[in-house]
Amino acid sequence: MFVYALSGIIMVYRNSDFLKTEVITEEKLAPNLKERQLKPIFKKGAEVVKREGDVIYLKNGTYNKETGVAIMKKMELPFILDKMEHLHKANTNSPLYFLNIFFGASLLFFVFSAFWVYTPKMPVFKKGMYFTAGGIVLTLILLFI
């Protein structure tokens, strides 16, 4: 639960540079590539900022048309946090996706089994129902705002 909680909190900041460090890589590409050919390589940062001679400056790097050398800047989480985030975002293409399904089913079991911990005659059960109703209302508010 700690891994999922921490990676979930970190994923809230995935559009920012929170906890990320800049990683610079240099790659030899074919010379004289067009801007549209650079988009899949530079991805989100493929927007041209300026040009100086044979060098094209992009949002997240540079490309030299004559030599074909591309220098790319990317912001990455530390290794462990990156692995935790990828585990959190796993899909059916991931080799261990069944662990995510098992974990989700286990959490659902914990949620619903809590209703059978106390008998309905106990005062704490009534108080728990108020908290449950409040949680449902809060969830609906968060979903529709």
Rank of each mutant, 00 (worst) to 15 (best):
N100C: 06
W116E: 05
V124E: 13
P123W: 07
V111S: 04
E85P: 00
P78V: 13
F125N: 06
W116L: 10
V69L: 14
E66H: 04
I80E: 02
N93P: 00
L107F: 02
E66S: 10
K127H: 13
F115H: 09
L81Q: 05
H88N: 08
K126S: 12
F103H: 07
F125M: 05
N93R: 02
I101P: 00
F102S: 11
F131M: 13
N64F: 08
G104N: 01
F102A: 12
F79L: 09
N91Y: 04
T132R: 14
F103Y: 09
M72W: 02
N64Q: 12
Y97I: 08
I71P: 01
G104Y: 00
W116R: 07
M75W: 11
M72H: 02
K83H: 10
N91F: 07
M72S: 05
E76H: 04
T119F: 03
Y97R: 05
P78A: 14
M122I: 03
T119M: 03
N64P: 04
F103L: 08
D82I: 07
T92P: 03
V124N: 07
E85H: 10
A70F: 01
V69D: 08
P120N: 13
F125W: 10
Y97C: 04
S113W: 12
F109L: 09
F109W: 09
A70M: 02
K89L: 14
L99R: 09
N64K: 06
A90C: 11
D82K: 11
Y130N: 10
G68D: 06
E76T: 04
S94I: 03
P78Q: 11
I71K: 10
V117F: 11
L96T: 15
K89R: 15
V69E: 06
F98K: 11
L99A: 15
I101R: 02
I80T: 03
S113A: 12
K74S: 14
F103T: 03
M122E: 04
A114Q: 13
G104Q: 00
V69Y: 03
N64T: 06
K126Q: 12
Y118V: 05
F79C: 09
Y97F: 14
N64I: 06
W116K: 12
M84T: 08
K83A: 13
G104M: 00
N91I: 08
N100R: 05
L87S: 01
K65D: 01
A105N: 01
I71G: 01
K65F: 00
P78I: 09
V117Q: 11
G68P: 05
T119G: 06
V69A: 07
